[in-house]
């Protein structure tokens, strides 16, 4: 029997993989992809609880999360391209223009 807890554990594991990606990798494109994995983990949680509670509101919020993820990807990748044109790198260790 698959309970919502199973889905929550799957979601937590996917979230952790995303967190490890953000913390360990230095290529900013892969860090963005890890953030997409984290957002997917959140969506799995929302949909699993939407089924558990017999209510579709969780799916509506998952759609909003997807919309925000699309906006984030568009703007973030635009920033990456603008930065790459200036400094010829996508390594976040070299992204210290605004470092105090």
């Amino acid at each position: 029997m698959i309970t919502p807890t199973h889905y929550m554990v799957l979601s937590a594991a996917l979230f952790i993989i995303g967190v490890v990606g953000v913390m360990v990798r230095r290529n900013i494109i892969i860090i963005f992809m890890s953030i997409e994995l984290i957002l997917n983990a959140v969506n799995i949680n929302l949909v699993a609880l939407s089924k558990q509670l017999q209510n579709d509101i969780g799916q509506v919020f998952a759609i909003f999360v997807i919309a925000v993820a699309a906006a984030e990807a568009a703007v973030g990748l635009g920033i990456i391209l603008a930065f790459y044109r200036n400094k010829e790198t996508v390594n976040i260790d070299e992204m210290n223009l605004m470092k105090w």
Partner: peptide
């Protein structure tokens, strides 16, 4: 999870749209 509409949205927006954007950026960079 009985959410087929969200599954279709996932395929269209994520697998079809966002990932292609990533692929273009990887090619440009």
């Amino acid at each position: 999870l009985d959410a087929p509409f969200l599954g279709v949205i996932q395929v269209l927006v994520y697998a079809g749209g966002i990932v292609v954007l990533y692929l273009f950026v990887v090619m440009l960079v």
